[in-house]
Design a protein around this nucleic acid. Structure first.
Lengths: 208, 208
DNA sequence: CCCGGCATCATCCGATCGGCTATCCGACGG
DNA sequence: CCGTCGGATAGCCGATCGGATGATGCCGGG
């Protein structure tokens, strides 16, 4: 009774690698692969896997978090184990919020990956050490944490948008954007837009 | 007489994937793997491969470009084919400057990858279409490169300094700072300070 | 020898930003 | 039921920015 796994990753090389690694075990089995949302939907529906290994960066189209959310909305949803390269606070929160059961990094050694898949199949939550650290830091610090909305502002800010443009993009008024910015400055300990972008990238709140 | 290949990538998954893919051919052969500079050095010395498949982002420590440069400095250097995820202009230039014979992206289909390895072994130069396009675009335009002074401004800018403060720091007038900023905006294709910081970090003009 | 790129500086002015104060609302928890 | 928090909104005002325009001096390549 092996654990049935579906791979979702836009890189053929990575899918082949995971396939090769997993085929070397006797209790894990790859039953399907997908490179985008549409394919993932149909493959999961057809194969009903125990665990979906999900990359967050799928190139064009919806990202892994969106795919995760959609898969988790199914009747008997598969457990989703995120396996990706980056781990900004925003990435992690978005993925877990979408219903992922775990979050591992691609530089994990194979045995750890296997253990993670098995644990996920059993319903446990697995987190890479650095991801756990990020979550702990976030939980432990009584300190200021940027809110979801503020992250959105930061992402637009990094694209060089002005307040008016951000407001339009976020469907709020310019006053609201300024309010968010003020909070961001306080929380990041800066007092300019440029400084906020640098600090946000530094702390991996956003990525480039 | 098969082509002997060494893999350099910090992700076990990717190495396994490439290994699996390459073992499916009858004229290519993986003779070694490495995940960092030190390992790459000894593995290449021991196996003397025809081609090294090089990832640029090796996590901690020296990047793939540095490893490439070091390998190319050997007596009978192997040809190096870069195989990576991202392809910013800076990445490409650094890699080619370090002596890489080609630059492919990880989302390339397997047959293309195999063809690239064979071509590299023959001494040809292989470039992914998007990489070629980037180089062409650059060659076509007498490309703007940020000057030393402009980099200095960018670094201060990323610290959130205002024009007056930058001027004081650089021992120039505020007008000069503004002049530099204007040039920076033009060269980076942005029109705000925040955008300039993001673009500069993205292109690795400044480091965080 | 002249041109172009780089660095420097100046002035002007409209647009934008940043800081401040204040209000309102829904959600969550004590 | 009340306090707190995230989020949205408003107005005000001085400081700053961004763009336009123009000028000077130096240096290196054609």
């Amino acid at each position: 009774m092996s654990v049935r796994v579906v791979l979702v990753d836009d890189h053929p090389v990575v899918r082949a690698g995971l396939s090769a690694l997993i085929s070397g075990t006797d209790d894990l089995e790859v039953v399907g692969e997908a490179h985008d949302l549409a394919t993932a939907r149909s493959v999961v529906a057809a194969t009903r896997p125990d665990v979906v290994l999900m990359d967050l960066d799928l190139g064009e189209g919806p990202g892994g978090a969106a795919v995760t959310a959609e898969l988790r909305a199914l009747d008997e949803p598969p457990r989703v184990l995120v396996l990706t390269t980056y781990a900004t606070e925003a990435d992690i929160l978005r993925a877990l919020d979408a219903g992922a059961s775990g979050y591992l990094l691609k530089d994990a050694p194979a045995p750890e990956l296997f253990a993670g898949i098995r644990a996920t199949a059993r319903g446990e939550t697995v987190l890479a050490p650095s991801v756990a650290a990020t979550l702990v830091r976030r939980a432990a610090s009584p300190g200021p944490v940027v809110t979801e909305r503020e992250v959105a502002v930061l992402e637009l800010l990094a694209q060089g948008l002005g307040n008016r443009e951000m407001a339009k993009e976020l469907f709020v008024s310019e006053a609201t954007v300024k309010s968010h910015l003020s909070h961001i400055y306080t929380k990041l300990g800066v007092d300019t837009r440029a400084g906020a972008v640098a600090a946000a990238i530094e702390r991996r709140i956003i990525r480039r």
